[in-house]
Design a protein around this nucleic acid. Structure first.
Lengths: 126, 126
DNA sequence: ATAGGTGCAAAGTCTTTGCGCTTAA
DNA sequence: TTAAGCGCAAAGACTTTGCACCTAT
């Protein structure tokens, strides 16, 4: 594991759900010579090696997460922030409901987070 | 609704799950002067107007479906074909499990379709 | 004539990759 | 000294968009 790869992994662990570009920006602060291509290259390799997880977000750049237990993602339609949430045995549930052997799935739940909801309420009162 | 827009809708209705490029190719056979930009433009407008539905597929171009009832999608990891499947009250289930008010969701189920599975079996026997 | 739609091509966004150089074992 | 990794820049895939033109009202 190279220096850069280690740094990238640290950054992902320190704050999840970052896009490649966000990771690049943060890495650049610590090691200014790093190139965006290196970030993408290492993200790809680490994803393949299952050290991290790539999260597909419709209509938005991929995000990367340190690979812990499977969990789902809530995506705020307003501020575009991604949050974790876990749903027990969702894969089993989906297999049971569909009758199909499922290899995996990508799920994005769209909602309005509590901060944005509050702002909306305030706006309405004005 | 313009001529081109009508044609595009017809094509989508006639065989679902097509990418913009596939729709373009098919439209070009009927009206050769049509431009890819026009296809994308109309797909965007029709999606906004909820006349059709845009399906996000991780790591692959978007696909378009005539908007019927909500349903889920199975994506074969081998031949990259997309199939419909419906899961009753999935949104309710997800809301109940998460305790979060959900606006919508994107779900992609990854599997190996029966044709590809058969081929795999045959290969193994050889 | 005129507003909406179109073809064309350029540009935008995100991501990958070829190549020659660097670097650590 | 040599394989692995890197910086750089170009290119690739998909999609959007500005603009001048065209076409039905």
């Amino acid at each position: 594991m190279s220096k850069h790869r280690e740094l990238i992994l640290e950054i992902i662990k320190s704050s999840g759900h970052m896009t490649a570009d966000e990771i690049y920006m943060k890495a650049k602060q610590i090691r200014p010579s790093i190139a965006i291509g290196t970030v993408y290259r290492n993200l790809g390799l680490m994803t393949e090696a299952r050290e991290i997880r790539r999260i597909f977000v419709p209509n938005a750049p991929d995000r990367f997460d340190s690979f812990t237990n499977p969990h789902e993602h809530l995506f705020c339609q307003n501020c575009r922030t991604l949050s974790d949430i876990s749903i027990n045995n969702l894969k089993d549930y989906l297999e049971k409901q569909t009758g199909v052997k499922i290899i995996g799935y990508d799920l994005n739940l769209k909602y309005i987070c509590s901060e944005c909801r509050k702002k909306e309420e305030t706006k309405e009162q004005i």
